[in-house]
Design a protein around this nucleic acid. Sequence first.
RNA 1: GGGAUUAUAGCUCAGUUGGCUAGAGUACCACGUUGACAUCGUGGGGGUCACUGGUUCGAGCCCAGUUAAUCCCACCA
Length: 882
Amino acid sequence: MEKNAAAMEKTYAPQDIEQRIYEAWESSGAFVAKRVPGRKPFTIVMPPPNITGQLHMGHAMDGVLQDSLTRYHRMKGDPTLWLPGTDHASIATEVKVVEKLAAEGKKKEDIGREEFLKHAWAWKREYGGRITRQLRRMGASCDWSRERFTMDDRYYAAVREVFVRMYEKGLIYRGNRIINWCPVCRTALSDAEVEYEEQASSLWHIRYPAADGGEGVVVATTRPETMLGDTGVAVNPEDERYTRLVGKKVILPLAGREIPVVADSYVDMTFGTGAVKMTPAHDPNDFEVAKRTGLEVLCVTNLDGTMNEKAGARYQGLTEAECRRLVVKDLEEQGYLVKIEPYTHNVGTCYRCHSTVDPLVSLQWFVKMEPLAGPALDAVRGGDTRFIPDRFSKIYYNWMENIRDWCISRQLWWGHRIPAWYCESCGEMIVSREAPDICPSCRSERLHQEEDVLDTWFSSALWPFATLGWPENTEDLRYFYPTSTLVTGYDIIFFWVARMIFSGLEHMGQTPFDTVLIHGLVRDAQGRKMSKSAGNGIDPLEIIDSYGADALRFSLCQGISPGADTRYSTERVEAARNFANKVWNAARFVLMNLEGEEKLEGKRLGLADKWILSRAQIAAREIGEHFDNCEHGLAAAKIYDFAWGEFCDWYIELAKADLFGEDAERKRAVRAVLQHVLETLLKLLHPFMPFLTEEVYHFLPGREEESCMLSAWPEYDESLFFEQEDRQMQGVMDIIRAVRNLRADLKVQPGHRARLLLRAQPGWEETLRGAETHFLRLASASEVEYLNEGNAPEGKLVSAVTGAAELFIPLGELVDLDKEIKRLQKEYDNLTGEIARAQGKLANPGFLSKAPEALVNQERQKLSDNLAMQKTLSQRLSDLRG
RNA sequence: GGGAUUAUAGCUCAGUUGGCUAGAGUACCACGUUGACAUCGUGGGGGUCACUGGUUCGAGCCCAGUUAAUCCCACCA
């Protein structure tokens, strides 16, 4: 049963209704996706926020785009699933838990793995639900019954299954490779997790004397402390300066070891001295050279970033920075330091803690990328997955084409422990879905599991199918996979999107989504990235508290364009809040003037009625198309313009005449139109402003469905589009604007009504006679007089010309003849310019032959209208000049 | 070093495959308590669409170059 409009507040108060509506939605089960055999579903998997996370503007943007698409498709009747969940965020969470323990005076090493994991799970229980509660406040209509967590049991099973399968296929291997080591997080990182920062540093030039007593070579380095791990010097084989040294030995200063000089084309002859010190254990390039030339690999650092015993007794135990100072000092004192140049270069840093990472060789687990990259490239090249905007495919190609093996082991505790066991008797390694009891090789029972856990992104890569029940062949999996649209920011294309694509292809044989919608970052009002450390973050929840979720949602959709960053500003939210209030009040007005349900069928519709119904059809069609193209910004602009610029500004004002008039039949017709258009408007706006529209919907008499969220999306209805009336109404509106214009120009008191004399242009007479009430109401006319072609009006008049009519207003003393002539002359000049433009165009044979016919006709129509107006103006001017 | 993006009213940005006498919000100015809304209404001022060439009947949109800003990628010690 509908509520009484008298109960509506004068100003929309979102705070009072949002929670109530959300709870009603959720408890009604309306978010729960239903499989309908034979119908194509619309599916979105939510990028799972970290359990450590709190809702920020990035989530808000992500969420709104997904929710509006979800709501649009649900209203269209598609079986719709928006699947939510959270990510265990291995490294991020572990850091938080370590910090919490530190505050209690505890260290993770002291309490041990099991105890630590208890703390981590406690953290998850305490904070894991926080972000999902916050998403509810945004109005997110996800299917919470299918919510998943990347470390729940079934998900864990999927991760183990993937790991074992890939291991057995040879796609996962364990080996000693050079990896990026974060000495603070104390774990290996993948290449994607290293961020490069430019740092001002120095280039140290060091002499390595020849073993036979000669001069030797001078090498240049940015990291002098690593020289302690040098096992050779490399030069370019073409470099004649050094030809005689290749194969000979030089003495490594400070260490006193003899190391060979090798030739490798990797060395750039033009850089530095053309001789490069080789530290294979601590530099990826040197590692490659060492592999080719057979140099030894000597690791001189511990995993905490300090120097180990191989660095020599003098340096052992020092941090790298300390070691660098001492090495430089020693070199200088012993005369090996040739010079120091200032030098800026890129330094790799940890994406979590931003400390400098050390490349070092260690035993880690890797995913072999080459066999996976090919199909992943084909899927996008072949169009199975489409990026919006398209330019992100190029970024994807570039990354995928140059990809190196992915280091997936992390020396952390919180995460999916790698399902590999080692036999303590014979050293056998067993990779298995379940913990083995005995060693298959030596029957020993003394087994221990691999200590490392997997990269968080290894498990999130499985999100589109693991959440649907894989590896079991569930009905959900069969029905909802592959999903439809993935919505995310460009910052995680490599971390997540690319890895989901190759994982989906490898394990499901199909790309995980048709479309990837990439949106931009929400920046602050000055265009800076929002961040905790800069303290410029805006809390979406605070915005919701003061402006309402709908205002926040709409402001995030207004004026955005796929892939482009956007700035948050209070002004934008205020504008959206004002829009919400405008719609609320328009609805309040309509509802106050309805007397029960009034159907459109059988009503005698007038010009304005047919016009607004036509505008509604256009709006429905365009907004639908924009959603189909993921053009939220354009869809938002259209609903805004339709609701405010057409429905409120014009139709409601026009309707008042009939609504407050005496004609009972007209009254009923207008009520029917108001009701119908309001209902359409609410539905079109619902994906953006779900709370407001839902609330208002419940006041509507005779509404189709119980809930706006479940109502049918308005499809374009040809029987409600009236081309002729649509055009005629534009002509009437032009006249009204012209009158208002004149009145404002002459500073006529708004209360002063004046006679309006109209001389219709050919073909407009009937329309204008029918629009009389509109002129009376919106053009402040006391009465409307229709003139014939010949009879010129007498007295002091102001006038204007539109495409539909010549109009005059007798304003007596207010009329200043000179000003009137000036104004008309200006208008005349404008028209003359426009006419010249059109004539030029139409005189151009190229335009006539090549432009589309409709356009040529339109141009001809414009020209003839303008010529008619010009003629009228010219007559009027000559009358005035008398 | 490679690549991408952006450059449109004071400010924030739209402008989807070239048809625009270039739009919106906001700010500004004038007037306004006309029976939904002052979180409002009506009207107004304000832009050689960064620059230079080119393609085209037609360019804010396409192409080339220039300038400026931002971002991503890259193993030059």
